[in-house]
């Protein structure tokens, strides 16, 4: 095609009207393919089967992102030879995390024991039941946050639906497992529902996420319920997904709207995952 016959693009040197857009049939087929993917994923959650493995596959991307930071770290390490210190710090951090978690559980257990006169033997605390996971990434989508953890799991004991805990309490549950990584649906996810019990009034409820850095909501709470502002919420253990007596959040606002059948109770979740690098997977 000569430039004399047609208007020629200065960018690609091709005749402008000779560049065909994507053909309608290809476009339609791709559109149908994408919609089918969405529908199949919605109906059968097929992506959860592969997400963990894909995260393993994509881990080099995260490594590349970390490269500038790693490079700087290395320079500092060479100068101060703090490798040994880091190893011992990691070990202490791990122990500290476990102890803090157990402490948090004990706090609520103590309260319950005082109230119900339970004996200490009922608390079955097993350090070996926890597996340490290091945060790899937290997706930027605030209304569909997904946390990816690197987990060293030689015995393959990590499974979907196992709870993930921070030093203070429950942070989410595993939705997909790969070889060395797991994907976690965090408690702030709008799809997340956790059965809870309040610390002082001992009322049961369901806590629903509303997105990252957003307050959660207690759903379908009748107006006669006597929740109090400032009250801490612990997992109740109902549903057998989350273990009981772990801190989940704190009630910060209660509103009784005349046009609403239920109370509007807003809850602040415990520490956001962005502030932490290490989490525990409860494998029992």
């Amino acid at each position: 095609m000569s430039s004399g016959d047609h208007k020629v693009s200065k960018i690609s040197s091709e005749a402008i009207f000779a560049v065909r857009p994507i053909s309608s049939s290809k476009f339609l087929i791709s559109l149908i393919f994408c919609l089918s993917l969405i529908l199949v994923d919605l109906r059968f959650q097929t992506s959860n089967i592969v997400r963990g493995y894909v995260q393993d596959f994509l881990s080099p991307l995260y490594t590349i992102i970390k490269l500038p930071g790693i490079f700087l770290d290395r320079i500092i390490e060479v100068r101060t030879s703090k490798q040994e210190l880091r190893e011992s710090l990691y070990k202490y951090k791990e122990d500290n995390l476990k102890l803090e978690l157990i402490n948090s559980q004990l706090k609520d257990l103590t309260k319950r024991n005082q109230e119900l006169n339970l004996v200490w033997n009922t608390a079955q605390i097993d350090k070996e039941a926890y597996l340490l996971g290091q945060k790899r990434s937290l997706s930027g989508n605030p209304l569909r946050p997904s946390l990816v953890l690197d987990v060293n799991d030689p015995l393959s004991i990590v499974e979907t639906n196992q709870p993930v805990l921070s030093r203070e309490g429950i942070i989410g549950k595993i939705t997909s497992v790969g070889i060395a990584s797991v994907e976690v649906m965090i408690t702030q996810d709008p799809q997340s529902l956790i059965p809870i019990i309040s610390s002082s009034t001992r009322i049961h409820g369901i806590l629903k996420g509303k997105g990252l850095e957003r307050r959660g909501l207690l759903v379908n709470v009748k107006k006669t319920a006597s929740f109090r502002e400032g009250e801490e919420l612990y997992s109740s253990g109902l549903g057998d997904v989350f273990p009981p007596n772990y801190l989940v959040g704190k009630i910060i606002f209660i509103e009784d709207k005349p046009d609403n059948e239920f109370l509007q109770i807003e809850v602040e979740f415990i520490d956001l995952p962005k502030d932490q690098d290490y989490f525990l997977v409860f494998t029992n």
């Binding site: 919609l35 993917l37 930027g140 997904s146």
Partner: peptide, 15 residues
């Protein structure tokens, strides 16, 4: 996979 969205959402947007 990176953003944690439903499978097919981003391909649909890109297409």
């Amino acid at each position: 996979f990176l953003q944690g969205t439903l499978l097919g959402v981003y391909p649909l947007i890109f297409i």
